Simulated assay, not measured.
Amino acid sequence: MTADTSLVLSELAADRALLGRTSTAERVAAILRERIAQGSFPPGTRLSEERIRGALGVSRNTLREAFRLLTHERLLVHRLNRGTFVRVLTSADIADIYRVRRLVECAALRGLGAPPYRVEEVRAAVTAGEKAAADGRWQDCSTANIHFHQALAGLAGSARTDDLMRGVLAELRLAFHIMDDPRRFHEPYLARNQQIVHTLERGDAHEAERLLDFYLEDSRRQLIEAYPERAAD
C-alpha cells in the first residue's frame, strides 16, 4: 500500500455506508473500481486484503470475489505467493484498448439516425472538462474526458455497449495515473471535444465520426509515445 494508505482506508470506511444491508461482491467491486479510477490505488499497488476488508466491513470471501471480478475486468492482477495488485498496462494493452474504442465510439456516431441528436450528456462532459482545466484540476479534467467518451458511446442507446465502454475506459485510466504530465496530455483535446460536440449539435454525424477517428488515432499515438513502460518493474 502507498504512503497515503491511512487516508485511503478511512475513505473506504466511509464507503461502507454504500453497501447497506445487501452487501455483495458486485457492490464491493464497484467501490474499489471507482477508487482505482480516481487513482486512490495507483497502478502497481499491492492491495492489502485484511486492511481493505476491515475498512469496508465485509467478509474475506466477499472481498476475494470482488477481487476476482476486477481481475476479470483487467483492473487487478493476482501474483502467486505475492498477492493482488492494481495492473500496470503495457503499450500493447493501450493499443488494444484504442482498437476497441475506435470500433465502438465511431460506430455509435455512424449509427445515428436523423438529427437532432440528444447530446446533452456529451455537452455537459465538455463543459465540465473546460471548467476543470480552467481551475487547474487536471485529474478532474481527465475524469470529464472519460465521461465525454462514455457519453459518445452512449449515443448508441445500448446498455451492453455502455457496460463495455465503462470497462474499457476504466482500464484506460490505469495508464493516465502514471503519466508524468496529465496537463500536457489532456489540454490539447479540450478544443477537439468542443469541436466534436458542436458538429453533433449541427446535426453532422458523418463529420463528427471523421473528427473522432483522427482524434483517437492521435490520442493513441501520443499516449504510447509518452507512456513510461513499467510492466517490468
Rank of each mutant, 00 (worst) to 15 (best):
L56H: 05
E120G: 11
A55H: 07
R102Q: 12
L103E: 05
E121W: 06
R68G: 02
N81C: 08
T71R: 09
V88H: 06
H72P: 00
A132C: 09
K131H: 12
G113H: 08
V126I: 04
V104I: 15
R118D: 13
A92Q: 11
P115H: 06
A95M: 10
I94L: 15
T62K: 07
R60M: 09
L56P: 11
R64W: 10
G83N: 05
R79E: 05
D96H: 11
A114H: 13
A107Q: 08
R99P: 02
L109T: 07
E73R: 14
H72N: 08
D96K: 15
V126E: 00
L109H: 05
P116A: 07
V104W: 00
G83K: 10
R79A: 07
R79V: 15
C106T: 12
E65R: 13
H78M: 07
N81E: 07
E65I: 12
E73Y: 01
L80E: 00
H78G: 06
H78E: 03
G57F: 08
R87Y: 04
Y98T: 03
R99T: 13
T127F: 03
D96P: 01
G129H: 02
R102N: 09
G113E: 00
R82L: 14
T71N: 04
A128W: 02
V104C: 07
H78N: 06
A95L: 14
E130T: 09
A128L: 10
L69E: 00
A66C: 11
V86R: 06
A133H: 09
A95I: 10
N81P: 04
R64Y: 03
T84G: 02
R110T: 13
A95P: 06
D93T: 10
Y117V: 11
A107P: 04
D96A: 15
R118A: 15
A95R: 15
A132K: 07
R60K: 15
R99A: 13
V119S: 04
V86S: 04
A92G: 06
A95Y: 09
V122Y: 00
T127K: 11
A92P: 03
Y98F: 15
D93K: 10
V104R: 08
V77C: 04
F85Q: 10
